[in-house]
Simulated assay, not measured.
Amino acid sequence: MDELENPYRPGAGTQPPALIGRDAYIDHFGTLMRRAVQGRPGKSVMPIGLRGVGKTVLLNRFAQIAETEGLSVAFIEAPETGDLRSLLARSLRKILLQFDGRKASAKVLKALRILKSFQLQLPDGSSVSLDFDALAGAGDSGVLSDDLTDLLTAAGEAAQERSTGILIAIDEVQYLTAEELSAAITAIHRTTQLNLPVVLVGAGLPQLPGLAGDAKSYAERLFEFPEIGSLNAEDARDALALPAAVEGVEYSAEAIELLLALTEGYPYFLQEWGYHLWNISNGPTIGIGDVQSAQQQVTSHLDKNFFLVRLDRLTPKEKEYLLAMAQLGKGPHRSGDIAAKLGVKVESVAPRRSGLISKGMIYSPAHGDTAFTVPLFDAFMMRTSI
C-alpha cells in the first residue's frame, strides 16, 4: 500500500493517530486545569509505567489541554545530568516575558527580577538574558528548594493576576536528582497552599512514587501516580484497526489475534507493527500471512532501534546482570535468584543493580524484586545472547 498514506506513527512521544484507552486520564486533567485557573488547585498527576506505554504522549496531550485552557506551558525533559535549574530558568523566562508583553505590572516585574536572581545560581555559570535588576534576597540563596519556591510563587502570582496559570510538565522525572525532585515538590506544595495557578505534572518510570516519597513524605498528598500499562485486547484492536479503517483498510481477525500476542498490547509496538504491515501489504485486508511475512523485519527493526540503543549504554557487567534476569524468564525476579544465576553473592551485585536502576533499565516493583522497565526486553536479551 502507499507509504505516503500510512496512518501509523511510531516514535518517541509521537501521538498516534488514535489515542486509545486514555480518556479517563485526559478528562480528569482537563478538570484539574480549569480548577487551577479558578484558584482551586488540587492533586496533580504523574503517570508512571514501562517504556513504550505512551507516558510522553499523554504528557504532551496534557500540555495541549493546558494551552487550550489558556495556561502557559513549560515542557521539560529531565536529563540524566541533573540541570533542572537551567531548564526551568529558560522556560519561565519565555512565559514571564510573554506576560510582560501583554501588560506590564509590578507582579510580573517582581517575578522577572526573582528569575534574574535565580539564574545567578545556574550550576554551569551561564545566564538567561533579562534586562532587569536581580531582586536581592529572593531566589538567590543557593538552596534550590528555597529559590524555586520563591520563583514559582512569584510566577504564580503574576499568572493569577492575569486570570491564567502555568503548567510545568516534566518528562522522565526519575532522572531528576534527589535535590531537584525535593525542590520541585516543596515549591508546588507552597503554591498549592497559596491557591496559586501553578501545576506540576510529570511522567516517569515505575520507581517514581518511591523516589517522590523519599524526597518528601507528603508527595502522595500532592500527586496521583496513575499506572499506565499495555492496552487491553479491545483497545489494542482499536489502536490497530481504527486508523486503517479511515483509509479503507481492514485487518483479518486472525491477524489481529497474532498481533495482540506479539505486542502484548504495548502501544509503541502496536504502532511499529501497524507501520511496517501497511508498507508491505497489498491491502485492502491485512491478513495473518502479512504478519508472518513481516515478523523478521519488524523484530530486526525493534532490536536495532528500540532495544539495542538501551543496551549500548551499559557496561559488560550490567549486561551480564540483565541476561541473567532474562534467563530466569518473565519477572519480577528476586535479587537473590539473579545473584545465584550469576554465581555470586547478592551483596556483590548490589552496586550493579543500583546502577541499572539509575540508568532506567530496571526497577523494584516490591522490596527485593527486580523487573525490566522495557517491555519484552527479556526476549531481546535471549535473542542477542544466542
Rank of each mutant, 00 (worst) to 15 (best):
T285N: 08
L84T: 00
S129A: 14
Q297N: 06
S163Y: 11
L240H: 05
G289I: 04
N6T: 09
A261I: 14
K110W: 03
I76R: 02
F377M: 15
S117F: 06
V45S: 01
T31Y: 03
Q38A: 02
L176K: 08
K103W: 04
P17Q: 10
L308H: 07
I65M: 01
T186D: 00
T299E: 11
L376T: 05
P267S: 09
A236P: 12
A89S: 05
Q297E: 09
S364E: 13
G82D: 02
D303P: 06
Q271G: 14
L115K: 13
R221C: 01
I26H: 08
A294K: 07
G21C: 06
G42Y: 00
R190E: 14
A63F: 01
R313G: 06
S354D: 14
P10I: 05
T68K: 11
G265K: 11
K55V: 02
E179A: 13
E318L: 09
L302F: 08
V37N: 07
E69W: 00
L260T: 05
S91R: 11
A63E: 07
L130G: 13
R35A: 06
L311Y: 11
A245S: 06
F372C: 03
I168K: 07
K216I: 04
R90W: 02
G289C: 05
Y218I: 06
E220M: 12
D171W: 09
L148M: 14
Q296P: 05
Q160Y: 08
R310L: 07
Q160C: 06
K216S: 09
I386Q: 15
R190I: 11
V37D: 03
R352I: 10
A340C: 01
L342D: 05
A241N: 02
M381E: 07
D150H: 04
T56C: 03
A36M: 00
E224W: 03
Q15D: 14
E234A: 06
P206W: 03
I288L: 13
E220K: 15
G202F: 01
A138E: 13
P351K: 12
D235M: 10
Y321A: 14
A245T: 05
G360L: 03
